[in-house]
């Protein structure tokens, strides 16, 4: 049956196209990674060769470790991403619960208000955000970044989570009420555990843009001790443009954490996108 419907030629052509595109997608990453382990001379002489005993060198990584404080940058990125995600999920779920569960006056209006931010990028307000952070003394703190990313992530989080929360059975919540649970207990004990898959989707959607953002770290927190990894590598690479070993190593080190996160979460991410969470 399958051979009747799909001749072998079509399948081979499909694989050929996909393999070609996969190579195009991975080639730059591959070139950067292999060359970061080579000596300067080998980088230029045979850029596409794998490092061998002769050309292997860690000189670039040594420069990076001596010159840039990549562990600090990494730590900053980690704090910003984790705290922002936690706040997006907590605040977003609370607001989504209020919108999905209670029929109060202005419910629809509140829902629309919170959804505005899905289409309007927060960057438009940068001038006023910077001014506000300067006047509150939050410039060059991680708090400034966390606040911005939380505000940026909330609209989509509320939207997705409230869709899911409408699907939680009323009987369950009412049974909880009869057992004397307060509304807060119903939210934290009954509803939150049930929407965990949707929370995971929201988390992976927000994680990558926050981790990779360059705009807000550049404007709100450019100081050395609060640099994120993305900004840190940008500045570092800018300074070492002619030191190819250092640049390639810095790039590889910036790729590594995202790749690890991706390998851990790729299933969740792809399931989240393909499950129709974004409609």
């Amino acid at each position: 049956m399958s051979t009747l419907r799909k001749p072998a030629g079509t399948t081979i052509a499909a694989h050929a196209i996909l393999i070609t595109y996969t190579l195009i997608a991975l080639f730059p990453v591959f070139v950067i990674l292999i060359n970061s382990f080579k000596t300067r001379r080998a980088i230029f002489r045979e850029p596409l060769a794998l490092p061998n005993a002769d050309s292997f060198s860690l000189i670039g990584y040594q420069t990076v470790f001596n010159q840039g404080d990549f562990f600090l940058y990494f730590q900053n990125s980690m704090i910003v991403t984790v705290v922002s995600l936690t706040l997006i999920l907590l605040f977003g779920a609370m607001a989504a619960f209020a919108l999905a569960e209670y029929g109060f006056r202005g419910n629809t209006l509140m829902g629309l208000y919170l959804a505005l931010g899905i289409m309007i990028p927060i960057r438009i307000g940068t001038v006023a955000i910077l001014e506000m952070m300067v006047s509150t003394g939050l410039v060059n703190t991680l708090t400034a970044l966390i606040l911005v990313y939380t505000a940026q992530g909330l609209p989509l989080a509320v939207f997705i989570l409230s869709e899911f929360m409408r699907g939680v059975s009323d009987d369950l919540k009412n049974a909880g009420r009869i057992d004397g649970l307060s509304e807060y207990q119903i939210f934290f004990r009954l509803v939150l555990p049930l929407v965990r898959p949707a929370m995971a989707t929201v988390a992976v959607f927000n994680m990558i843009p926050i981790w990779n953002d360059l705009w807000f770290p550049l404007i709100l927190a450019p100081a050395e001790e609060v640099k994120t990894l993305t900004l840190g590598s940008q500045v570092f690479i800018g300074q070492f443009v002619t030191d190819w070993n250092a640049v390639l190593s810095a790039l590889s080190m910036a790729i590594l954490p995202v790749m690890i996160l991706y390998v851990i979460f790729s299933r969740q991410l792809i399931r989240g996108i393909t499950s129709g969470a974004v409609k």
């Binding site: 609370m94 607001a95 209020a98 931010g117 438009i124 006023a128 001014e131 911005v148 509320v158 939210f187």
Partner: peptide, 20 residues
């Protein structure tokens, strides 16, 4: 339930947008 999200969203996103 609504307060934290609405406050952060309004203060850091909507208000700066109009202020800009």
């Amino acid at each position: 339930f609504l307060a934290p999200a609405v406050i952060v969203y309004t203060a850091v996103m909507i208000y700066p947008l109009f202020n800009t």
